[in-house]
Design a protein around this nucleic acid. Structure first.
Lengths: 138, 138
DNA sequence: ACAAAATGATACAATTATAGTATCATATTA
DNA sequence: TAATATGATACTATAATTGTATCATTTTGT
């Protein structure tokens, strides 16, 4: 049972790395070398982050990826949504055939409460909050 | 992204149903009919709950399953552990090759905190707490 | 113009987890 | 001894996760 998949984990680490570097633009290969992730997989992840507006990309020599948004504005839920879809802790349904308690299902209610709290906490985790103290301003 | 799989969901509903009935012993087929779940799948789930000590089973006519433990003592985490293994929100590792921040990874720390809280809340959900008010004593 | 260095688009493949099915054996009861 | 129930277990299907690989396109520097 995982809440966070490797996709998301890699993406977060890549974002952190980019945010920490002095250079603005970091190439995919540099990330692969530094973070030791599977090349093709990371490349795909970077492309996705670009499409979703969290990274800017530039081609050619000296090109690569740079943050399109400040590190403080990228939350863990943002990244999770991109790579894992919407967060839902349970699929427990209201349908009569699925749950004998129908609209008044206490399990559903309790899970939903927990879900809300989890989402709130994940939302509070931003890229900059993950960076070591001292790097936070960036 | 799911926290609770269908296994667990079915198991919880079956336990609730058994806890609610006036008869102590409920046959698998009765559960299948009442809860409209796939027969073989539910049967396997019931067998597992029996092996794990949450249900007692009896064979032959009039046989079936009964709670082996009171509904207030079965928590959601118990059931989740059985069907989904240990709860871990992230696999984010401390290994040098996996995380550039190694032993001081703030992401890991933050996720672990959330994980602890989630587990505590899931632990607070028992079968009896899911049952409608009025049935709670059982 | 052209080669090198980078990303873009996209299709494919492997592995694992989830969800479900089916069958035969065994025990119990009437 | 037949009917009813679970036990053990092997098999299958589907979907999600985790990758891999290839060719196209853009940019830069010589």
């Amino acid at each position: 049972m995982k809440l966070i998949t490797r996709n998301t984990d890699y993406a977060v680490r890549a974002l952190c790395y980019i945010a920490e570097q002095k250079q603005e633009v970091i190439s995919g290969d540099q990330l692969v070398k530094s973070l030791e992730m599977p090349r093709s997989f990371l490349r795909k992840i970077l492309q996705t982050l670009n499409k979703e507006g969290f990274l800017n990309s530039s081609k050619g020599k000296g090109g690569g990826f740079a943050l399109a948004v400040s590190a403080g504005e990228i939350t863990l839920t943002d990244v999770m949504k991109i790579f894992q879809g919407p967060i839902r802790l349970s699929e427990h349904k209201f349908k009569k055939s699925d749950c004998p308690y129908i609209s008044d299902c206490l399990l559903k209610k309790k899970i939903d409460e927990i879900e809300k709290e989890v989402i709130a906490k994940l939302k509070a985790i931003t890229i900059s909050s993950i960076l070591k103290k001292g790097d936070k301003g960036k």
